[in-house]
Design a protein around this nucleic acid. Structure first.
Lengths: 352, 352
DNA sequence: TGACCAATCTGTAACGTTTCAGATTGAAAT
DNA sequence: ATTTCAATCTGAAACGTTACAGATTGGTCA
């Protein structure tokens, strides 16, 4: 005689389909007097179901609040109705991740898709979470960010024919879906604005050089500088991904050099806080000794120092776009049709 | 003759268990010459399996990289191995949501649990997503934040015996798991610091009055004020959840009143940006005309205005704690054992 | 009349897992 | 020699869904 009798789900799915538990196809089949197959097909508007039957089934289904069992569908079809957002969980200054998640959620709200967050930290291989999702089939598609020109994850996903969208572009020959902010245009506009303001010695606080958008931003910066005939003040000891303290210290160093910049383009709002702190550590003042054009996703820079010029990046929108694309992709849309580049808005001064 | 033959998964789970697809219990059963039941039990260290068999099965399982199919488990047992974070997706100034998610992810990384984000917006009933999760059984437990003293969601979850943790406490008689920041202590320490600085006319920029932690913060503020013998300068036209523009405008109004405060306690870092902007709009200066003690989760306030005193709230830690508790709860731990209150650190001036 | 057909419906099997209720051992107890 | 028992193992059934391969109509056509 066992001492352990598991009787927990005694009352879940009753023996009779009229039981107390959540309604299933069987419940509706019982109520309508039809077979489960018919009910299943009627609910998805299959062609070989009579008009009246279809309506009857759908009515009953609505009445009893039928919701397909995800595990059942998933087991049978392999479709998970899940989208995975692969995230680097390192601390980031004023990270934009929440907005991204909000945007994705928003877009997914009216679909059967759930959003699941698949994290990785610096220790792990960035490929690891992606491989996990593909190998275990735990999602129908993934969203990845922080793309590199020759991104291992993108190669892997392409090889395995797994649906994905990248936040950021790659230099891989094969076309894939992406959404990106036009950082080339941002840097170009930023340089022009600084030139307009009479600034001549410009520096760039760029993203890490491994990432794709580093190159875009840097090219936009350099091309425009060359066009105007300016020479760059190098500032490559630090990136927007470094810590506040590091950026601040390097920024101080930068401003204490013989010929410090009088204009700086900053690739991220969070980093700009630290950048300005360093500038002020050097006894200089933004708007007087140096002008700054910074990208931002939160809208805090103008409160911080009203003299900063800003370009807003709408990350929530990016999230929406990425989710929209991924869902389309899973539905069979060609990757080439799901590529978009968000244009930066104007360079804004305080109050604009 | 049908024109449509579905032959897509012809090569997935082969007829032979030795096929190409992902290994299942059947694969291992075939390889070891055992029954699937035995394999299933051997893998979970059931008592009625011989020592050698167990080792053999586990070895093979490891070799072929066996990973239980989540849909199979879920369908059979009802266990989803999913935790749902229920989120309000409204814009928040400098929201702490990313840190929360990082913390939860971090904690969940070494468990079989996945994190899924279940959003709701202002239009929807906050109860809606919770009801969805419970009704569809789409997770084993939920994490909710922005709790109210008499929280409908908490009542609902208690009634349905569904595992949950709240970020924030309630006044509901029944015990439930929570993690909270001690906002009473924060407000108390803040008031004391301002008193120490010689400030006498104090105001509080509080959370929305519907939320639990409004009361904690407010009580901490008022109790300590009474203790010292101060009277409050009312500032209840706005909360930390309002927009930058609204807070800024009301802050300006506040400072233009006949007897403006000379000390302000602010419940959120994001709001403090707007608060200070309003103060400066009035021609006043933080540290001279008024001192501020503000809670923050990002570490930006000292860069913003070095004169602000800050108390740091570690939201990532809160995420970890919430996830840890929820997993314990699902594992059968009593709710009363999963209640924790994070004590605020010291009130910090610049450089401390 | 009988054959054929389209329209509609249905049962069975399978996805991968766990649980139930045995089956098969070999050894110990009678 | 038979019974008993513990130790191991096993097949069948079920979770809810969909795909496949029919079944059952009633009508049309030769």
């Amino acid at each position: 005689m066992d001492e352990h009798h598991d009787m927990e789900d005694e009352e879940r799915g009753g023996a009779h389909p009229g039981g107390a538990g959540r309604p299933t196809l069987k419940t509706i089949a019982f109520m309508t007097g039809l077979g489960v197959t018919t009910v299943s097909r009627a609910l998805k508007d299959a062609p070989e179901i009579g008009e009246e039957t279809r309506r009857r089934v759908q009515l009953v289904a609505r009445q009893v609040g039928y919701r397909p069992n995800r595990a059942g569908v998933r087991l049978r079809t392999g479709k998970t109705n899940v989208i995975s957002l692969v995230l680097n969980t390192e601390e980031q200054i004023g990270g934009f991740v929440s907005d991204m998640i909000y945007g994705i959620s928003e877009q997914l709200a009216q679909t059967p898709y759930h959003l699941i967050v698949t994290p990785y930290s610096r220790n792990n291989d960035p490929l690891e979470p992606v491989r996990y999702v593909v190998e275990t089939g735990s999602a129908d598609g993934v969203i990845i960010s922080r793309t590199e020109p020759d991104d291992k994850r993108v190669r892997y996903l392409l090889e395995h024919g797994f649906p994905f969208v990248t936040h950021g572009r790659t230099e891989i020959g094969v076309e894939h879906a992406f959404h990106d902010f036009d950082n080339y245009a941002f840097a170009r506009d930023a340089v022009r604005k600084l030139a307009e303001l009479g600034r001549k010695r410009l520096a760039l606080l760029a993203p890490p050089s491994s990432l794709s958008y580093y190159h875009h931003m840097r090219n936009g910066f350099l091309d425009t500088m060359a066009e105007i005939g300016f020479a760059e003040v190098p500032f490559n000891t630090v990136t927007v991904d470094h810590s506040i303290d590091q950026i601040r210290a390097r920024s101080l160093q930068l401003m204490q050099r013989p010929n410090p910049p009088d204009g700086i383009v900053s690739g991220a709002g969070g980093a700009t806080f630290a950048l300005v702190a360093g500038i002020e550590d050097a006894g200089l003042k933004v708007g007087r000794d140096v002008d700054i054009v910074s990208k931002q996703s939160a809208r805090l820079l103008h409160l911080f120092r009203p003299e900063i010029y800003v370009v807003n990046e709408n990350v929530r929108l990016a999230g929406r776009e990425l989710a929209r694309s991924l869902v389309a992709l899973i539905g069979g849309a060609p990757a080439a049709s799901r590529q978009s580049l968000a244009q930066p808005g104007p360079v804004l001064a305080l109050g604009e």
